[in-house]
Simulated scan of single mutants.
Amino acid sequence: MKILIVEDNGVNRVLLRDILALLDGVEIFEAADAENGIALARTKKPDLVLMDLQLPGLDGIAATRILKDAPETRKIPVVAVSSYAFPREKNAFFEAGGDAYYTKPLNVDEILEVVERYRGGGGARGTKGENPGR
C-alpha cells in the first residue's frame, strides 16, 4: 500500500512515518507542502493521502479539492490529519471531497485503523471522522 503524507511540520511527518512503519507492506511518500503533495499524488498514485490542513501557501483544503477535481487522482482517499477541530474547517474539507477527518494530537490506534480500512478498499465508513456526505 502506498501512502502519501502531506505535512509541513517535520516532527509530525516523522511521527506519522513511525506510526505507519508499524504496518507491513506500506510504502511512504512525504511532502512538506501542498504543491509537492499534489505532484507526488499525480506521479506516485498513492492508495491513501494523509493531509494536514494548515500548510504554507496552498492549504490542505484547496489541495484536497484539486486532487478530487482531477480525473487521475479523484478516487484516491484523502484523510485530514489536522489540529483544526472547528466545524467550519471540517465541513470545508468534506465539501472539498475529503474522505475522513482526524484531529491532532494523533491517536496511534486511529491512524492504524483508518489505514487498515483503506487498505482493503472499503473506506473509512464507520470511523468517527468519516465524511457524512459519502
Rank of each mutant, 00 (worst) to 15 (best):
Y118R: 07
D99R: 05
E95D: 13
P132W: 05
E130T: 04
V14M: 15
A100I: 05
T43S: 14
K68C: 01
L4E: 00
K75P: 02
D8F: 06
I28P: 08
G123Y: 13
K128E: 10
L22V: 04
V11S: 14
D18M: 15
Y118P: 06
D109H: 14
R74Q: 15
A34M: 03
V49N: 00
R13N: 14
D24K: 08
V11T: 15
I66N: 01
V78I: 08
V81C: 14
I66A: 12
L4C: 02
G25H: 11
A63C: 11
D69Y: 04
G98R: 03
R88G: 11
L50C: 13
V108L: 12
G25S: 11
V78N: 01
S82M: 09
K128I: 12
G98F: 02
M1T: 14
V81G: 08
G10K: 11
K2D: 11
L112V: 11
P56L: 00
S82V: 08
T127G: 10
P71Y: 02
R88N: 13
L48K: 01
V14G: 11
R65W: 05
K128V: 12
M51I: 04
N91Y: 09
G121P: 05
F86H: 14
D52L: 10
I111W: 10
Q54Y: 05
V78C: 03
G126Y: 06
V78D: 00
P77W: 01
T73W: 00
T64W: 03
Y102G: 09
I28C: 09
N131R: 06
K128C: 06
A34I: 01
L50F: 14
R88F: 12
F86Y: 12
E110G: 10
D33Y: 03
P77M: 02
V108M: 10
L58F: 00
P46E: 00
L22P: 02
G97I: 04
K45Y: 07
A70D: 14
P56C: 02
D99N: 14
R74F: 02
D33W: 01
G129H: 07
F29V: 06
V49W: 00
R134S: 05
A41V: 08
R42N: 12
E30N: 05
N9D: 15
L53R: 06
R125D: 12
I28V: 15
A39M: 09
R13P: 08
M1E: 12
V49I: 13
I19Q: 07
V11M: 13
I5A: 08
G121R: 04
I61R: 07
K44M: 13
T64S: 06
T103M: 09
R74I: 00
T127I: 11
A92F: 03
L58M: 15
G98A: 07
A39Q: 13
R88I: 13
M1Y: 11
G25F: 04
E27K: 05
D18F: 10
A96Y: 01
A85E: 15
A34G: 09
N91H: 13
E95V: 06
G97M: 08
E7G: 09
L40D: 03
L40N: 05
K75D: 15
A62F: 00
R117K: 15
A100L: 07
D99F: 04
E7Q: 15
G25T: 09
G133Y: 11
M51D: 02
A85W: 09
N131V: 07
L106V: 13
R42Y: 10
P87M: 14
G60M: 01
I76H: 00
D99L: 06
L53P: 04
D8H: 11
E130Q: 13
M51N: 05
A41P: 09
